[in-house]
Amino acid sequence: MCGIAALQLKDPALRSQLGTLMHGMLCEIVERGPDSAGISVYGDARLNPEGVATVSLLDAGRPDGDIAAALTDLLGVPATVTTLGDTTLASAAASTDELSAALRIAAPGARQIGRGDSVATLKGIGDPVGLAEQFGLESVSGTQGVSHTRMATESAVTASGSHPFTVADDLCLVHNGSFSNHASIRRTLKAQGVEFDSDNDSEVAARYLATRLQAGDTLPEALENLKAVFDGFYTLVVTTADGLAVLRDPIACKPAIIAETDQWVAMASEYRALAGLPGIEDARIFEPEPGEVYSWTF
């Protein structure tokens, strides 16, 4: 069992409330996964300033100030580095590739667990609500976000095993379920040169989607391909800079409920996570059909 809560705000007037709304949703999915959690937020001016790339690190290994100074030297532009709980966020007015490469030198032992121009990913172990407070979730604004509470079943409870998996620029995946053929797909991807951050089965799905998107698939096409290749139980939420998608496996044991109004679209493991959203009384509420890809773009 894991908990998922995702929210895309279509109405710009609501975007200053993204963090507050996500916090309310997260509090209702804690019981589904109390061991660790992660949050990805798109378009927050503090976490992701315009024209600035952000990379999330675990086990940064050096004080924030030292990493920032090294990055500034390497990139020739000012860099900011902030540690929030287990996660360290590094930002600079550079491309994500340049920032990522500089971080391999500036923070050589660190794991890079998120990257993008629009997204900031924060992960940690322990009480999800405590983590949300460490991350300052309630003060976050932005266009969309996804949070995940994990009840680990197939790999260790670690920050790197927490979701979301943000494995390519602005691409996040969260998963409730378990894949049964992830090891063989991991081998195939490794043979193609793909590198992994963890032993987690969900990361394999994220890496697979990244390769499909790289090859030119649209997000719905990439998810159709995932459905054909992956075996197991899953409810997936995938977000990109452009939008959000939901897919349940054809057996559909894992829950998902979607609510949509003109102002927002939200998906959660359980209705109670949606109950506090503004205008929920008049929302269109439905369970996504098994095996069907749903997507929303801005």
């Binding site: 209702e28 359980e270 109670r272 996570a273 949606l274 109950a275 506090g276």
Partner: peptide
């Protein structure tokens, strides 16, 4: 007779 209000998705 009973009326229950504000279940809000409770289990």
């Amino acid at each position: 007779r009973w009326r229950v209000e504000n279940p809000r998705g409770a289990h």
